[in-house]
């Protein structure tokens, strides 16, 4: 087991390097440079000053040399400084990361506790009113664009009913609250963002769950369970569920990158100071170091998420655990 995980982690290294190369090239190919703000857009800056500025940042060298010097520094965990405010890139990312990760973890938990029971119930009561309503509901959620849904929910629950705050992660007088008060306050602010972040995946995963459960219900070993004299509850929640969950593990692992990229949308809409918004701002100002640092970290999170899903899967399925 340990050997397998070590092997998988070692395999991540070349993948990660590949990701950095591609991202590095793509971001440098995009027109514009980080120095534009200070030079091109300012008519008073002379050509010499402009070149000098580029030289300071090493932007005058060919791209592969830039990459090599970048990756050398990254190997020592030095991601360079932001071109915008001169602060270390890693620091900027790390201070924004907790809120993004928190929202994503909360959404995964919500997906687990809503999508899976929903899928099971739809499968078991296939063709019932419950199944049909949830099918319609789920498809609307699936098809609706996240930002639009976010705005709709904001205007209804936030503005019209006034139940939840519509932006930010904490109230203005946050500092004056007790610890419990602070947690409740942040929680209150996160209700809508978490909901929006999870609805799309929730819809998809509940459909997968329903289909997976339907497949399993028709397997021969379920017929065996009936013939044994087991009750329906035991058959569904013991014999069928354990098998039906197997493919879902992989799918949840695969949905992690989607959640991360979704962060950009809901953080912008809800004005949450998270990693997604930071990344968008960094891309607009061509803040190469911050963009690359953010990409490396989210790539790492995605790869680790998939690794955890794979390990969980092979642990859950005895056919993989013990081989044939």
């Amino acid at each position: 087991m340990l050997r397998y995980i070590t092997k998988r982690i070692l395999q991540l290294i070349p993948v990660l390097i590949g990701i950095t190369i591609i991202s590095f090239i793509v971001i440098h190919l995009a027109p514009g440079k980080p120095t534009d703000m200070a030079s091109q857009l300012n008519p008073k800056v002379s050509q010499e000053a402009r070149e000098q500025l580029e030289k300071i940042y090493g932007l005058d060298k060919p791209i592969y040399i830039q990459y090599i010097s970048w990756i050398k520094k990254v190997a020592t965990f030095d991601f360079g400084r932001s071109f915008v405010d001169g602060r270390p890139a890693i620091k900027k990312i790390l201070e924004r990361m907790p809120i993004t990760v928190l929202i994503n973890v909360l959404s995964i938990i919500l997906i687990f506790f809503v999508a899976i029971p929903l899928g099971i119930k739809s499968a078991v009561r296939r063709g019932s009113v419950f199944d049909k309503t949830s099918t319609v509901f789920v498809f609307i959620m699936f098809a609706a664009p996240g930002f639009w849904l976010a705005l709709l929910l904001m205007s209804f629950f936030g503005v019209k009913l006034g139940w939840v705050p519509v932006s930010g992660i904490a109230s203005l007088d946050f500092e004056n609250f007790s610890i419990l008060g602070k947690i409740l306050n942040v929680g209150h602010h996160l209700i809508l963002p978490v909901l929006v972040a999870s609805l799309g995946s929730l819809a998809g995963i509940s459909r997968y769950m329903r289909q997976s459960m339907l497949n399993v219900i028709h397997q021969d070993y379920i017929r065996t369970a009936w013939a044994k004299g087991l009750g329906e509850k035991d058959i569904l929640y013991k014999h069928a569920l354990k098998n039906a969950l197997l493919p879902i593990i992989t799918i949840i692992g695969l949905s992690i990158p989607g959640l991360l990229s979704g962060s950009v949308i809901f953080e912008t809409v809800f004005n949450i100071p998270g990693m997604g918004r930071l990344m968008v701002e960094a891309v607009f100002s061509r803040d190469y170091n911050v963009v690359m640092c953010g990409l490396v970290i989210s790539a790492l999170l995605t790869l680790l998420g998939n690794l955890i899903a794979d390990v969980a899967y092979s642990y859950a399925d005895p056919r993989i655990r013990y081989g044939r």
């Binding site: 021969d220 070993y221 017929r223 065996t224 044994k228 004299g229």
Partner: peptide
């Protein structure tokens, strides 16, 4: 189904045709 539980397995049992798929793979 409820009334049959006492008969299935206890009074009448069955051996199926497909030995490869009739046992639950995860138990």
């Amino acid at each position: 189904d409820k009334e049959m539980l006492n008969i299935r397995g206890r009074q009448i049992s069955i051996v199926f045709q497909e030995p490869f798929t009739s046992l639950n793979p995860v138990f």
